[in-house]
Every structure is written in structure tokens, then in C-alpha cells.
Nucleic acid binder design. Structure first.
Length: 658
RNA sequence: GCGGGCGUCGUUCAACGGAUCAGGACACUGCGCUACGAACGCAGAAAUGGGGGUUCGAUUCCCUCCGCCCGUACCA
């Protein structure tokens, strides 16, 4: 509703400006007035026009209002303040639109046909921690938003199964624990009590890192193991595959608890063994993106100009002054490829510009029947096709901005300017621990660290909060509350509701911060079910549900029955609820174009807050006027529907009771 | 050094360059359940790091200083 009327309005204003003043504004700013009594849209454009037209803003505003005449859907235009134009919609007509619409933005914020979102991408060598949760929840929510907007989205979780991190755990099993392949297999099949395989590897990984510290010669073993894994066909490679595959399964299980699913798991092992790099290398050399360095510190390497490096224009004058020391190495002097190099090849594949595809194998099937595919050298004959997309979103933390930009730079250098423009690094800040939280967890914290606002988590040091531990703690806390409130309920039902509340709390917690904000993790805040939290919004829904239950009516019955919308005409507070509900598609659009799910989270909370207010003020079931009662019920139903839909986009369920 | 991000009530987070109190949450003080369940509501107190500039208008844009964080590998 809100989006449609806004478009209607801006189109009319645009026409009017051209006709009446022969001017065009690059973009028409549309605000909301401070109070809904003043209208639904506020246009500050006369301030901007004042200089151009040499007239006072207020006069321009009056002229525009006079020139607008009747606009369908709008009741009135008013000049306010120093020259604002406030537009008041026809509330009854707008409310009718709210009753009919769905969440899909009609203005198509998503241009691309096929979109690929990559998120999670945890190194498969240890349990997922809270930092990974933020990544996965941001990514999954963005996927849900895009799909709600009608986009076709594939979800990928990139698996770096041949990197140093996996190598480190392999070193741990082979050399620290002297375990054979079958012993590790047994550990995977029958984990120690209270210690799933990914937890086991979490500890082992930290021990190996410690072991490297003790004697630098141990690092030789790591290098050796890394090379063995990359080459394949040996003991270390087999062990690596065994470990990474088992850990991936654990990660999928962890994410399933949060309602997060993937379509495809591309692995680095296939990027290597199917020689993706060779094809990319040819293109890069051919287009001159890469050049061979013959002197300086990068002598003997294939390098490219670093993204954002200065002197791009100055090369003509400075080219005689020796090699570009700031260049990014893509192929090392020992002929191996760096991470960025592999990533370039991978991204050429994503955009269908590589000329080669993965093999695909079935890997995991979700309860809902959806299938996850994994890359393989020789895949199954019958498989879906991934890649070859129009736009990509890589949910990767902000620390990796440089390598991401280098990949984009390489694409641009290859002439794929459109692909480069449709390559979005969905960047977000990390989750760190407050010093207090670290102490609470029993870690030793240096005095100087205690003064810091937060401390970075580190898988290498085993320093952090594991995802499954946090989920477990949340469920236990929620269960306690549910048990108090609903002792009569069957246990399975109580558990289900506790899980919904726990996940709601966790997902909302990870979404309420904007991406640029570092989350300083603290148990007290994360475990809270009060205030600005997921359960707060869920509770508003439950309250509405309870009213309908007592009234003996379903939401559908209420919304399809006779509703006297004239009550809206002189009730600003209730009208604001309808207006908010009608803004859902606007919120979806904004969240997508700004790649900011926090925007949707804020909306959900505010809507719930307004509903709780309404709930407190109007006692619906005892309302004597039957028509008014039906109108109030419809208000609750409309808000509930918008809330349920918005929470669904965040992966938060609406519990039946709580 | 260079590049990027960030400094907002006690704490934590909001605010496309816009309208009277810069908004919410937590914490704090004081209230409100015989109601559609209080995982709620009401009231109170409390903030834009310093200095310039652009603008009709700056928390927002530009410059500068101070402070914090992250990058800046032939690691991923």
C-alpha cells in the first residue's frame, strides 16, 4: 500500500514540476511527517527548488499544492512549516489496499533474474561459533527477503576443505594423537559423550596451534600436510576429506536448528582438481590483468595491480622507477596459487564466465525434502545447475574487504564490467566478546584486554562461544519460562515452543544491530527475552492470536467479514497501525536495496510495540459496539499478519502460545 | 605510513541532509494484574569527542585534531 501510493505521488509531482516549472529533480525525497495526524508523506522539495526558481519555499509549496489537484488515493495536500508539503491519504481506501495486498514489493527492487547468495562458509575444521552465526543469520535473512521480493535465489556455502585450517586438524590427528583413519572414523560415528566431533576438533585445533608455538619446526609438518592435501591421493588428503566432510555435516545440523538451509556446497578441492584456475589463468594473462614480475620483492610471481592502489594513473611516469611493490601476488614464485587467485576462478564460474562446471553429488536432505548438493570431480548425471547468475551477494566479514575488492578488480580487468558491478560484498562487522563475558567463560584475560570494549574471538586459540552451546543455553532458558507458564502442556509441545522462542531471540539479536556495528557479545543481553528482542515481537503475535481464539474467530474470518473502515478517519493511533502494516513491502524493499536486514528487524519491533500499546488501550472482547469490535479485531488481524510475515523473513516463527 | 570503519543518555543500539523533546532497549526511580496472560504497559531522569567549513537546515557531507577498531602476506 505505502509503496504504491508513494509511487503514485512522486510520479504526479514529477509531471507537475516538468509542466509547471520545466525542472527535473534527480531524486524526489519523500519523508514521513513527525506525526501521522499531519499526513503520511512529507515532501521537502520546495526547499531545494527555492534557489533554482528564485522564490520562497513556502510560495512554491503552495503553488505545487494548487497545481496537484486531485490525486487518486489521496485526500488532501497541505503546506506546513517553512515549506513542507504534507500528503494525507484517503485512509479508508488505503486500508482497503492493506486488506488485499501481500508482502511482495510491486516496484521490483530486484532487477536480476537469478541471484546467488553465499554465506556461512566456515572452515570445516571445528565447531561453528557466534561469529559464524551472525554471518549465517544475516545471509539467510537476506535470502528470505530477496525471495519475498520475488527473486530466484540460490544459496551457497563455500567450503575451504583444502586450506591450512583443515591441515592443522589433520596434523593434530596424525601427529599429536597418532590416530589412524579408522580411529577418526570411529570418533565421528561414536563421539565421546558431550563432545560431538566438531567440538573435539575445536579443542584439537587449539592444541595444534599451541604446539606450533612451542617449536617452530612443527610448522614444517603443517606445510607438508597442506601440500599433501592439495595434491590429493595420500593419507593426509584422505584424513582431510574425512574430517571436513564430517564437520560440514555438523555445521549443517547446527544451522538446521536455526532454520537455515543451503542449495549447494562448492568445495575448494574441486576448484583445484577440476583445474578451474588454469582456465582463469589463461584469461587473466590474455587480458593483461596479470603480469610476471621480474624484479623486486615479488620477483618470480604473477601479480596484479592491487584494488584501490594509488598510482594507477601515475604509472606512465613511475613505470621506469622499478616494480610495483604494492602489487597483489596471485601466483607465488613456487608456482602455487594464492587464495585470491582461486577466488577469481570461482567467481568467474559464478557468473558463468569460466567455461567449466563442477560435478554435483547429493549430500544431505532436509526434513522438508529439500536437497543439498556438494561439488565433486565426477558427479551424478541428474543434477540441478548452479552458477551462471546475474548478481551475487557474498556475506563475508569486513576484514576481508581487500581480497574481495581484488577479485572485483580482476573481473573488471577482464572486461566483465557488468559482473563487477553486480558483485556485492555483503560486508558486516565481527562478533567479539566483552572482557566480562570472556572471564565468565573461564578464559584468561590480560589486564590490558580488560580495558578494551571487546576482544576478538579466535578459533585458533579456541577462544569463543560455540554456536550449539549458545543455542542450547537459549533453549534451556526459554524452556524454563515456558514450563512456568504452561505446566499443563505436553512436554514435546513445550519443547517446540521453547525452541521457537530461543531461535527468535537469537536471530533477532543478530539482526538488530546494523552491519557496521561490532557486536560485543554478552550472555545477559543475548539471553534476554524482554525489551527489544525476538520474543517481544512473538509475544505481540500470541496476544492477537489469543483474542481471536476467545472471540471464536479465525484471522481469515475476521478479515473477510464486514469491516467498517470509517473508524479510521478520526483515530490517528489506530490508523498508524494500519499504515505501518501497509509499509511492509516498503520495508522489504529498503532492506534489500541497502542490504541491511536490521531495517526489517527494527520495523518488526516497532510494529509490535505499537500493537502492545493498542492492546493495552482497547479491550476488544468487551467492546459493546459490535461494528467497532469487528473493526478492532480487524486491526489486530492486519497487524498480526504483517508481523508474522516480517518475522518469517527473519526466520523467526510465530509460536501458538507462549 | 597508507586504506577502511567507528566515537550519540550510566550501558547498548537507532535516526534517505529535514519539522516542536535526537528515538528505542537495558539498567535506575515510582506506579499498574478480579481484564484479550505482566515475556506487558504508564510516568520520571539522562547523550551527538573538540574545533572549523558547506547548507535555508548537519548526528549525517567536507577539513582538522583527539580516541578506539579492522585491513595493509608469495595465510586463508
Amino acid at each position: 500500500m505505502y509503496l504504491d501510493l508513494e509511487q503514485q505521488l512522486t510520479r504526479r509531482i514529477g509531471d507537475l514540476l516538468k509542466r509547471q516549472y520545466d525542472v527535473e529533480l534527480p531524486r524526489l525525497v519523500v519523508d514521513q511527517p513527525p506525526r501521522v495526524a499531519l499526513g503520511e508523506y512529507a515532501l521537502p522539495l520546495s526547499f531545494e527548488l527555492a534557489k533554482k526558481l528564485h522564490k520562497p519555499p513556502r510560495k512554491i509549496a503552495e503553488e505545487i499544492v494548487a497545481g496537484l489537484g486531485e490525486v487518486p488515493g489521496f485526500a488532501k495536500f497541505e503546506v506546513a512549516g517553512a515549506g513542507y508539503i504534507n500528503a494525507k491519504v484517503d485512509r479508508v481506501a488505503a486500508a482497503r489496499m492493506v486488506l488485499q495486498e501481500d508482502a511482495r514489493p510491486k516496484s521490483e527492487p530486484v532487477k536480476a533474474e537469478k541471484i546467488l547468495v553465499e554465506h556461512t562458509s566456515i572452515n570445516p575444521n571445528k565447531a561453528a561459533h557466534i561469529g559464524h552465526l551472525r554471518n549465517a543469520i544475516l545471509g539467510d535473512t537476506f535470502v528470505r527477503l530477496l525471495r519475498a521480493a520475488g527473486a530466484h535465489v540460490d544459496v551457497q556455502n563455500y567450503i575451504d576443505n583444502t586450506g591450512v585450517q583443515v591441515a592443522d586438524v589433520v596434523v593434530g590427528f596424525l601427529y599429536l594423537e597418532n590416530k589412524s583413519k579408522s580411529e577418526v572414523e570411529a570418533l565421528i560415528a561414536h563421539p565421546l559423550p558431550g563432545k560431538p566431533f566438531d567440538y573435539y576438533c575445536w579443542d584439537l585445533y587449539a592444541r595444534v596451534s599451541q604446539w606450533y608455538e612451542e617449536d617452530k619446526d612443527h610448522l614444517q609438518l603443517r606445510l607438508q600436510t597442506l601440500h599433501d592435501i592439495e595434491r590429493g591421493g595420500n593419507r593426509a588428503a584422505e584424513m582431510g576429506k574425512l574430517i571436513s566432510t564430517a564437520i560440514i555435516r555438523r555445521h549443517l545440523e547446527t544451522m538446521v536448528r536455526l532454520g537455515i538451509e543451503y542449495d549447494f556446497l562448492p568445495q575448494e578441492s574441486e576448484i583445484l582438481h577440476l583445474h578451474f584456475w588454469d582456465l582463469a589463468f589463461e584469461q587473466l594473462k590474455h587480458q593483461g590483468v596479470l603480469y610476471f614480475e621480474t624484479e623486486g620483492k615479488n620477483k618470480g610471481c604473477w601479480v596484479m595491480k592491487r584494488a584501490g592502489s594509488k598510482g594507477a594513473e601515475a604509472t606512465a611516469e613511475t613505470s621506469d622507477q622499478g616494480p610495483d611493490e604494492d602489487a597483489k601476488v596471485i601466483v607465488r614464485s613456487n608456482n602455487t596459487v594464492t587464495y585470491v587467485g582461486k577466488d577469481i576462478a570461482y567467481h568467474l564460474w559464478k557468473f558463468g564466465r569460466l567455461g567449466k562446471d563442477f560435478g554435483y553429488q547429493r549430500f544431505y536432505r532436509y526434513r522438508d525434502g529439500d536437497q543439498v548438493w556438494i561439488s565433486a570431480e565426477s558427479g551424478e548425471a541428474d543434477h540441478p545447475h548452479f552458477g551462471d547468475v546475474d548478481a551475487i551477494y557474498n556475506v563475508i566479514d569486513s576484514r576481508q574487504a581487500d581480497p574481495q575488492n581484488n577479485v572485483i578488480e580482476a573481473l573488471r580487468g577482464l572486461g566483465y564490467t557488468e559482473e563487477a558491478a553486480n558483485y556485492h560484498h555483503f560486508s558486516y562487522e565481527m562478533v567479539a566478546l566483552t572482557p566480562g563475558c570472556a572471564v565468565e567463560l573461564g578464559y584468561e584475560v590480560a589486564e590490558e584486554d580488560k580495558k578494551r570494549p571487546y576482544i576478538e574471538v579466535s578459533g585458533r586459540k579456541g577462544f569463543g562461544v560455540k554456536a550449539d552451546d549458545l543455542i542450547g543455553a537459549l533453549i534451556a532458558a526459554a524452556e524454563k519460562e515456558v514450563n512456568i507458564r504452561h505446566p499443563e502442556m505436553p512436554e514435546t509441545e513445550r519443547q517446540e515452543i521453547a525452541a521457537q522462542i530461543a531461535i527468535g531471540a537469537l536471530r533477532y539479536f543478530m539482526l538488530k544491530f546494523t552491519k557496521t556495528s561490532v557486536i560485543a557479545f554478552d550472555f545477559k543481553e543475548a539471553l534476554s527475552f524482554e525489551g527489544e528482542t525476538g520474543p517481544y515481537a512473538q509475544y505481540a503475535i500470541v496476544r492477537a492470536t489469543n483474542i481471536f481464539r476467545k472471540a471464536g474467530l479465525s484471522a481469515e474470518q475476521i478479515l473477510s467479514g464486514a469491516i467498517d473502515l470509517r473508524f479510521l478517519k478520526d483515530d490517528d493511533e489506530i490508523w498508524e497501525l494500519w499504515l505501518r502494516a501497509g509499509q511492509l513491502s516498503h520495508v522489504v524493499k529498503q532492506s534489500i536495496v541497502t542490504t541491511e536486514p536490521a531495517y526489517a528487524a527494527k520495523y518488526a519491533f516497532q510494529l509490535a510495540q505499537q500493537f502492545n500499546n493498542f492492546y493495552h488501550k482497547h479491550h476488544i472482547l468487551t467492546e459493546a459496539d459490535e461494528a467497532r469490535k469487528r473493526f478492532l479485531l480487524a486491526t489486530a488481524a492486519v497487524v498480526r499478519k504483517a508481523l508474522v510475515e516480517c518475522l518469517a523473513m527473519m526466520g523467526i516463527a510465530a509460536p501458538s502460545v507462549m
